[in-house]
Design a protein around this nucleic acid. Sequence first.
DNA 1: TACCTCCAATTGAATGTTCATTCGGTTTAC
DNA 2: GTAAACCGAATGAACATTCAATTGGAGGTA
Lengths: 200, 200
Amino acid sequence: MNIQLEVGSMEHMSDKKRAIFKSTMELVRENGFHGTPMSMVAKHAGVAAGTIYHYFESKEHLLRELFNYAQQQAVAVVERESSATIPFKECFFKLWTGLYTFYRDNQDMLRFFEQFVNSPYHTTMPPLAEDKFYTLLFAFFERGIREGELKEVSPKILATLTHSSIISMAKMTASGRLHFDRKELQQIQQLLWDGIALGR
Amino acid sequence: MNIQLEVGSMEHMSDKKRAIFKSTMELVRENGFHGTPMSMVAKHAGVAAGTIYHYFESKEHLLRELFNYAQQQAVAVVERESSATIPFKECFFKLWTGLYTFYRDNQDMLRFFEQFVNSPYHTTMPPLAEDKFYTLLFAFFERGIREGELKEVSPKILATLTHSSIISMAKMTASGRLHFDRKELQQIQQLLWDGIALGR
DNA sequence: TACCTCCAATTGAATGTTCATTCGGTTTAC
DNA sequence: GTAAACCGAATGAACATTCAATTGGAGGTA
């Protein structure tokens, strides 16, 4: 009953805990949120069922923590790509590409993310203000408006539109329904930019 | 063991069947895909558990059929709003508004939809070609390109971008995180249009 | 109208399975 | 030596599904 405390940064996370996270993501991707019993997670992660309960209070807690973990990685991408020292337009393209690549290359995470966000676990939603990911995104688009690069539209709208375009493209790619080459990806970004940018 | 056959159009659907669909959507919205036992659906719909199995082979079949049912309604909206007799640009705005309104006013359905689409039920995905909803959308954007109104970008990309913007806005509204007034909705549509339209 | 027949529609208690969680005991690390 | 990490069989609850029994109503018959 002595649950391992969540540490802020993930570097010093126990190997077992990391394995449990990884397995959960993979299995949830394949079998869904349901269809993924704890016993299966345990076997796949190479630990005993009881061990999971050493680290996580319950299945629900495991899923919640995994979501936080995943979200932190997405936040890290935004922080990495949205440096204030380069021109906004360039930064917008960098951010779009960075997030798209991140989701495309972490399809387990993307799938888990989408399932979680649309599930009732996430329904008792944290107020937007506390959502670091969106807070960062808002700030980024606020900068664009402030610098006169973007239309005067609510940054929330700009952030949501941009992010949904990234997610939907990554999902398309992930599902194998469509594949985009470099040229098409640039087209998509350009198209979005044309929509949100202030005409010169 | 004599499962009631699915009828093509939904007008002559048994009342019970409709009630089961409705209850399932509401309950899945509140409790999720899991967390919604058949017994709960039965009670909420005012039928006995056994009755559900008169209409549906299994829980999975119930969910699949509900998804088809929901999708048909979305298809109906697209068909209604995308008449070829009015100018493309106007039609684009009509379609955006129509779908947005539909999702906003059918939040149970929207939530169910999103959960289903991201679940493994839907993973054995129908090839895109058989997806009537997207087929219609593609055709719509193909028309826009043919008529010289849109940039020469794959209609699949245009369709996906547009639809994801609609969904994400409807979800925002549904979750109560953001509310859009008429002016903002027009801004959003205009912004998208600016992105995809061929500059005069 | 009254009565019968037959089958689909409906019921809900019973069944068997699956699964989250527990806990007494063992191993590991320091 | 001891406390944390770990194990995995055992427990009990929740759940999808079944099925034997009941109802309802559409036709037929006299």
